[in-house]
């Protein structure tokens, strides 16, 4: 079946490819973090598909932020728990 538009996972793949040079110039330990960010964005491909944003990086960045927000919330909760336990 002729597809006019790439499947979204390919879009993600292309976006990651676009950042290859950026990645190359990073320190090795930082590269791993960048890779992780892209993997996080992959968890919400379906939202990117549905939103069909003409600038896919926006959806990808939003998905990364979302996972960061989740991680922050978890850490805050955990911190509160620990602090409550200390008192």
């Amino acid at each position: 079946m002729g597809r006019t538009v790439l499947p979204y996972s390919h879009v993600w793949e292309e976006e990651r490819e676009r950042w290859r040079k950026f990645r190359r110039a990073l320190r090795r330990e930082d590269q791993a973090h960048l890779d992780r960010l892209f993997e996080l964005a992959r968890l919400h491909l379906q939202a990117g598909v549905y939103a069909a944003n003409p600038w896919p990086l926006e959806s990808i960045l939003m998905a990364m932020l979302l996972e960061h927000e989740k991680a922050l919330s978890r850490l805050e909760e955990r911190l509160e728990e620990l602090e409550a336990g200390e008192q």
């Binding site: 597809r3 006019t4 538009v5 499947p7 979204y8 992959r42 968890l43 919400h44 491909l45 379906q46 598909v49 549905y50 069909a52 944003n53 003409p54």
Partner: peptide, 16 residues
């Protein structure tokens, strides 16, 4: 238009 294509030319929703 290209915008229309992006909105409609996709298949079913796939979660992870």
């Amino acid at each position: 238009s290209a915008g229309e294509l992006l909105t409609v030319d996709k298949g079913g929703l796939v979660f992870m």
